[in-house]
Write a protein that binds this DNA or RNA. Structure first.
Length: 486
RNA sequence: GCCGCUUUCGUCUAGUGGUUAGGACAUAGCCUUCUCAAGGCUAGAACAUGGGUUCGAUUCCCAUAAGCGGUACCA
């Protein structure tokens, strides 16, 4: 069994006493929620252990890497507050380093040029599949001594019969037979390294003590261990995180839900809520506490408690958590966030102070900042059927009488005293006398035109005296008017 | 197909060789209440299956099943 301090044992050639971990995304798409989670776990581990968190951009695939994706990833990690200690390093800027190691492998005969075309390889694969065999490179060019000029790719020589095992911090011992791996391509040429090779060189060069990454990399691990060994490197300690799943339990993708972090930002999730929620996907503290700020998560974080099975991304729970975070913000906080997110024109209602008050009142109804639009909308006048003004246990006549009385009281309130509190103080005695439902229901409907809405005093406090009286007069008209049959 | 990983309420999870198998989200009901929201209370809901080991297995062992991941000149 793994000792709880398992992760403290450092590989021999890493004389450093600090934990060094990294997030190494490739800029071939917008920052994925899964990448964000991997980054978070690395960051938590580094913070917890007093180590360093390194940021490396794996842009060896020139065809698919784009600057805008790189920018998005950088911005996203910043937004989440996952500050890195070093980097971002770019693999595209480190080609000399890979070339050196590539030459070393070539010189030692541990790697060789392969002249097989893609078509030939595809054919080989298909033939093997039909025979029910594992589709691996058959070793066509292994001993052909193909000269560099004719080489399509550089392949790494994998031993034919050997068992490669490693101790995963999360899963225990995992073993693979090298015979099932086959000689893998490690570079297209000396200046174009491929993933499995570049990672090994970088993780060594950057003195990574641990590699914490998604479960989808388990099968790459023996390949990387083999390459590390060939280069004389001691591999880092590995930890493979469970995947984030969609509702059908397959790897989360666009068909399940939003996958790019930015979409969550634009929908109005707060970074603290997202960090909190994502940390709970595959991990949770000893106690049952769920809502925690990042500092507390760091304090309680223990990689030995990370789950093995994949975790379904449950938006409902994220929404709940986000709502909890919104509730503890002030109206002014929320106002600032909304402006930053959607711009002034789309946010300001009447004026800034009124909007802040509106948010103070309405934040209980928001799960996400994007819910603001609907919230603001509930303070706007709506067209409605006059029949709605009559409460369930009331009558048209009673509603008209009560509404008129309210109108009279409200007229008497001075403009500069026209606040939610004052209005409540003025109207409640009457409502208590006549029956709250009988009085307040028609009042609220007259003010909002909606079956469900914020309360009448809240609405009046926001829309002001003139507008309130206008809406009430309109309500009275609907009740008295001959056209609106109840 | 082959290789690997995984398996406790619908979901995230706690937990133990003997527990009423705990919490949270969601769902339902009730309370509060002018409606809605918020809040409070309550309820239903799980140890994948089959063999062992054992006085006793959800827990330990072995199979099976199912799910997922990988199987590139992507990362």
């Amino acid at each position: 069994m793994r000792s709880p301090y398992h992760y403290l044992s450092m590989p021999d050639n890493h004389s450093t006493d600090t934990v060094r971990v990294r997030i190494a995304p490739s800029p071939t798409g917008f920052l994925h929620i899964g990448t964000a989670r991997t980054a978070l776990f690395n960051w938590l581990f580094a913070k917890k252990m007093g180590g360093k968190f390194i940021f490396r951009i794996e842009d060896t695939d020139l065809e698919r890497s784009e600057k805008r994706f790189e920018d998005d990833i950088i911005e996203g990690l910043r937004w989440l507050g996952l500050q890195w200690d070093e980097g971002p390093y770019r693999q595209s800027e480190r080609l000399d380093i890979y070339e050196r190691s590539l030459r070393e492998l070539l010189d030692k005969g541990l790697a060789y040029y392969c002249e097989c075309t893609k078509e030939k390889l595809d054919q080989d694969r298909q033939a093997q599949q039909q025979e029910g065999k594992a589709p691996i490179y058959p070793g066509t060019c292994r001993d052909k001594n193909v000269p560099a000029e004719r080489g399509q790719v550089i392949r790494f020589r994998v031993p034919e019969h050997e068992t490669i095992s490693f101790d995963d911090m999360i899963r225990g011992t995992i073993s693979f037979e090298t015979g099932l791996i086959g000689d893998l391509a490690i570079a297209k040429n000396l200046r174009t390294p491929l993933y499995n090779f570049a990672v090994v060189v970088d993780d060594h060069e950057m003195r990574m003590s641990h590699v914490i990454r998604g479960e989808d990399h388990i099968a790459n691990t023996p390949k990387q261990i083999l390459i590390a060994r060939a280069l004389g490197f001691t591999p880092p300690v590995y930890a493979h995180l469970p995947l984030i799943l969609g509702t059908d339990r397959s790897k989360m993708s666009k068909r399940h839900a939003a996958t790019s972090l930015n979409e969550y930002r634009m929908q109005g999730y707060l970074p603290a809520a997202l960090v909190n929620f994502i940390a709970l996907l595959g991990w949770h503290p000893l106690d049952d506490k769920e809502k925690m700020p990042a500092a507390e998560i760091i304090e309680k974080f223990d990689i030995n408690r990370v789950q093995k099975g994949g975790a379904v991304f449950d938006v409902q729970k994220l929404n709940w958590l986000n709502a909890e975070y919104i509730k503890e913000k002030t109206g002014a906080d929320l106002f600032a966030m909304l402006i930053a997110l959607y711009g002034e024109e789309k946010v300001v209602f009447h004026d800034a102070p009124t909007t802040v008050r509106l948010l103070e009142i309405g934040k209980m109804r928001m799960e996400r900042l994007s819910d603001y639009e609907a919230l603001r909308d509930s303070f706007l006048p709506h067209t409605y059927d006059g029949a709605l003004l009559v409460g369930k246990k009331s009558t048209r006549e009673a509603a008209a009488v009560h509404l008129s009385k309210c109108q009279e009281i409200i007229r008497g309130v001075l403009v500069h005293e026209f606040t939610q509190e004052n209005l409540e103080a003025m109207l409640m005695p009457y409502a208590n006398n006549e029956g709250r439902a009988a009085v307040l229901w028609p009042l609220r409907v007259a003010l909002t035109g909606q079956e469900r809405s914020p309360g009448p005093f809240e609405v009046m406090g926001i829309v002001g005296k003139d507008e309130s009286l206008r809406r009430i007069a309109e309500g009275i008209e609907k009740l008295n008017g001959p056209s609106s049959a109840a």
